[in-house]
Design a protein around this nucleic acid. Structure first.
Lengths: 144, 144
DNA sequence: AACTAATAATTAGTATGACAACTAAAAAAT
DNA sequence: ATTTTTTAGTTGTCATACTAATTATTAGTT
């Protein structure tokens, strides 16, 4: 495979990811979801009454510490999450959903799924699996 | 196809796009390329001595006007591009490469291609075509 | 021709993302 | 046990996105 062809995939990937996020954000906004797409991702990761350290959240979501600090700041300000002292490690705390946070998750889940579906019109389950496989391989190829 | 599965593709896409950009940016930085990945995308779009309006650049790159204004500001400050008055439309100007800009493009092109290749280890040309097709369909499905 | 609507670019405000520097606390090494 | 090294989280800075509002100019309408 020649190098020349690879001019474009990165741009394509970037452009598509931005549109997917942008489309969802727009629907979030018009639907008065009161959270951003990235905040939603954190909420979803905290499902099932989990108490996660920021470090664990970072790994789950692929975001870095400063970004998480800020997103969690915003979620706490909205009253959707809480920081709780870690009993064994005083450097860290655990993040978990408040009652309003759990309610928000329950309320928005089906609506978010519905929004996410829109991207997949005219695509098959096989396409979905293919995409997943390829993206994961790329992700691993660039593992730090 | 159930809605439930679609929780994850958007995150996967986002995460992968960020890693691809991040990996390239790191190599750009250590290689003293003196441009960011996004600035590079603009330079590349201006190849072949093209004079493009910001509006046209926005469509090519999938970025919006404010973002382009700032990227072009930075490129102009670095002396790699110039803004030239549009002869027919005094609202707009055209952007084009300066001589140093053209030199930068020539110098970096092969090095960027080499960097981009890294993501494709263990992936085939067929994978590449598949990914392109799927991403383009998603992009079009979410057309505003 | 005067008025209105649309367009190109900019500016301002907020959120995210990468990186570096920093603080505090825990773990490892001697 | 004291020192050194790691680790968790925060803060600061800059670049990128998205939205909304602004300005200047052009296009369309009557």
């Amino acid at each position: 495979m020649t190098t020349k062809k690879f001019d474009s995939y990165s741009h394509l990937l970037d452009r598509t990811a931005r549109r997917v996020k942008g489309y969802a954000q727009q629907r979030f906004t018009t639907g008065n979801f009161d959270v951003t797409v990235d905040q939603w991702l954190i909420l979803k990761s905290l499902d099932d009454d989990r108490y996660l350290k920021q470090k664990e959240l970072a790994e789950l979501t692929g975001k870095d510490n400063p970004t998480l600090t800020r997103i969690i700041d915003l979620l706490c300000k909205k009253g959707l999450t809480e920081r709780v002292m870690h009993k064994d490690d005083r450097r860290s705390f655990t993040v978990h959903l408040t009652e309003p946070g759990k309610a928000k998750l329950l309320e928005l889940s089906p609506r978010v799924n519905e929004i996410r579906m829109k991207a997949w019109e005219n695509l098959t389950e096989h396409d979905y699996e293919q995409l997943k496989t390829i993206l994961n391989k790329i992700y691993q190829n660039l593992e730090p």
